[in-house]
Design a protein around this nucleic acid. Sequence first.
DNA 1: GACATAAGTTGCATGGTATGCAAAGATGCA
DNA 2: TGCATCTTTGCATACCATGCAACTTATGTC
Lengths: 213, 213
Amino acid sequence: MQLMSEKGAAGGGLRERKKRATRAALSEAAVRLAAEHGAEKVTVEAISAAAGVSVRTFFNYFDSRDEAFVVIDADAGARMRHAVLEAPAHLSPLAALREAMAAELAEAEQQHELWRLHAEVLHASPHLLARGVGAHMAAEADLADAIALRLRGDGDTGGDGPGLYPRLLAAVAGAAVRTSMDHWSAHQEEAAFLDVFHEVFTLLAAGLPAPSA
Amino acid sequence: MQLMSEKGAAGGGLRERKKRATRAALSEAAVRLAAEHGAEKVTVEAISAAAGVSVRTFFNYFDSRDEAFVVIDADAGARMRHAVLEAPAHLSPLAALREAMAAELAEAEQQHELWRLHAEVLHASPHLLARGVGAHMAAEADLADAIALRLRGDGDTGGDGPGLYPRLLAAVAGAAVRTSMDHWSAHQEEAAFLDVFHEVFTLLAAGLPAPSA
DNA sequence: GACATAAGTTGCATGGTATGCAAAGATGCA
DNA sequence: TGCATCTTTGCATACCATGCAACTTATGTC
């Protein structure tokens, strides 16, 4: 191996790099085809062909067709979990979560065009935006777990999984991100995504007060 | 017609009553079968047979198999929208939403056994809890619209659909309800559902502060 | 009450989605 | 090189989902 790949979770042998490449190719093909033809008209066969693998292989990577439109980066959850656990102690749980998500989203914007297409595809078929919850639900459970750990300090979440508060926090933050994406997708010219994102978390931290206007 | 049915949206001719009955029979059959055998093992054919209709008819009522597990009451969205619009002016948007949802959930608990089974089914396959977002997304958009109307006072939402705040409010409230259901479903003996529900909205209104403990 | 109309149900045909299995191909390592 | 492991692939199978045409059932009117 001559060159480390750029990302955090990268590295490993040829096998793992190939797998990541295949997965990325499938995701990207799915998003581009959906942006062009509409998500409903894109078959698994078309996605697989565009990525140069068989249909059967597609289903080795994704549990369902929709998942390919939704989960752009499979490792994001693990990275966010790590970020929450490593966040400075003075941050509130909500702020720690906000920072973890902001970092992830900022990185996603590096592939600006794909990210924009992705937002448009989700906005065009709310069905998929919803499905995103499903795909991200595991990640949310992970985040809830991380928050619970952070609150307790030790390595024990209490046996019965994270409590009500961590789960609520993770679920609400997820909803906030999706709302931000959807809103930004409809107003791309008027505001930067990160501005929308921060406005949303400010509203959350303030307890969702009625706007003064 | 000799007797008015009990519910708000009830009434109408024989046709409408039959449709409601068929839909309810399909929903109930789906939930009961899922509670018994696990949602993944329940086919559309089994649900249809249990409800006494053909498979084709099932798909006249639901867009997908999962929808039958998720949407127990198709009119709930419209009722909540109405409740938000009619809520006392002194309530904050969040409180108005909370009251509308609480009323709906209290009514759902009248069919206690079915409601409990429903919560268990969703808890057992998070896949479906997620799908719930999809099914309820239209309702959430409606709620966002109602909140926007309420905030403006007149009959105009501003042309471009509800703004960021109403949408965020509806999405977060939806996430809160789902979290409540999931948590309560795992701790049914320890707390009443409405207690969990109110605790969640209290946390939201307080801006999700770190718990003192 | 009989009729025309609208609405709902059903079976059939069709195509896409998803999974298990076993054979073939690639990779990692000694 | 040769063996163990992982990945891809084709095939068979079952289920999901939709359009269409034929049939049955309410509704309103005369």
